[in-house]
Design a protein around this nucleic acid. Structure first.
Lengths: 233, 233
DNA sequence: ATTATACATTTTGTATACTGAAAAGCCCAG
DNA sequence: CTGGGCTTTTCAGTATACAAAATGTATAAT
């Protein structure tokens, strides 16, 4: 049916689902596929030069993650950002910042500190380059590495999920600074690293909370700006 | 093709995946399928009188939940209970007990109290009947209802997941009391309800923590008993 | 006897084909 | 026009068919 799409002859077995899953996931989180976009299985299938079967398995996974909504027997679409539950989101992510950072201070092993430091330097680079997308992903990796060091997979899973869900919001955050976040962010990261390294649990907690609060406040400010339109009455 | 498999003529379309998913999920959590059991797609397919396609979609979902592990191009099996991470589990579930109960005290609406009360009375009935399985599920519903009243879907999702993961452990807990949990459990539930109703956040937190601690301590006691064998040296 | 290699079997991943449910189009009566 | 019932079309859900891994087995070579 489709003589085009010849490009990829390398057909390694077992990577179809992953390919579809990864692609869709990043496109959804990057807002390339905005919330509400319908997802056409057939179209996707020939875009990826796959059949519908692996696509559907990928969609099943995404549905479990809540990234897509699927109406029975009818179309499936990218799920909406739940702006009504933003307070819940902020509450949860703040708690996860705190808990994971605390636990990191308590449970880290030498390897963890290396990983954290690496991600922090990548983050600095991204900031230096004013590359918002890179900032978001390196920031995520930075905090994910801290969570890993805390060694509680349940917290890590929730935290990572929140960070990913928040990618759509975080983009707003960085845009608000014109892709130049306040230098304080880097310092805050450094302070957190220091507190973790010193195994100072209380300080880690406090700094993590401050860090979270800073981000949350900024986003709230943004959103409230958006909401307040000066309408003449 | 297949003249046998007559049993289920009611072939409502769109319920195949759900059927497979629900069945596997409960069997895994009930330990009917013990950790490590291999899962044979073909066998499952004819057991449910379905083709492999819906089975595989169900498996994809379960894999996302971490209930099954799947090696690429190799067999898939029921994932193990991660006994190494039991401390992490206890830590997380205790925190979720606290947070959800706090939030419930803060955010409940009249409907919520009804739901909670209903589940509590169902739980009492289960206790009266010495029905461990019913206790586990009604207890889950009770705490899930509290979490719902807290209105933070992120916490609720994690908490419910922890409670479900813990079904395998909770069975141990109730068995330890010979399916007659200490009457204190019911009283603790009642106290929690009272604190929530009174919108007493601090008390809710304290009681939830005490409740969690009680369960955790009991399970820890059980596990340590198991480990200590009196070997003569 | 042990290892290596070829063949067969099992099983997973993917493609294609079929079916039915719901939306969209259509027709005609009011 | 307009809205209720009918037909058509479309697409989600399922079944089946096929292909590539991986594993097991038997036989040959050392």
């Amino acid at each position: 049916m489709n003589d085009i799409a010849v490009a990829a002859p390398e057909r390694k077995r077992g990577f179809g689902v992953k390919k579809a899953y990864d692609l869709l996931r990043t496109e959804i989180l990057d807002l390339t596929l905005p919330p509400g976009s319908p997802i056409d299985e057939v179209q996707l299938a020939d875009r990826l030069a796959l059949s519908r079967t692996p696509i559907r398995e990928a969609l099943a996974r995404l549905a479990m993650e809540g990234l897509i909504d699927t109406l029975p027997n009818r179309s499936t679409m990218v799920s909406n950002i739940d702006f009504l539950n933003l307070p819940a989101y902020f509450d949860a992510i703040t708690l996860m910042y705190r808990v994971t950072t605390r636990l990191a201070a308590q449970n880290w092993r030498p390897d963890d500190l290396d990983a954290i430091a690496t991600h922090q330097s990548e983050f600095s680079t991204a900031v230096a380059n004013h590359d918002a997308l890179a900032m978001i992903s390196t920031n995520r990796e930075f905090h994910a590495a801290i969570a890993e060091a805390g060694r509680n997979p349940y917290y890590t899973a929730l935290f990572v999920r929140l960070l990913d869900d928040g990618r759509r919001l975080l983009r707003l955050y960085y845009q608000s600074f014109n892709d130049r976040p306040p230098p304080s962010v880097i310092d805050e990261h450094e302070d957190i690293i220091a507190a973790i390294t010193a195994r100072d649990i209380e300080a880690s907690d406090r700094l993590a909370k401050a860090h979270a609060d800073q981000i949350v406040r900024q986003i709230q400010k943004l959103l409230s700006w958006d909401q307040r339109q000066n309408i003449e009455l």
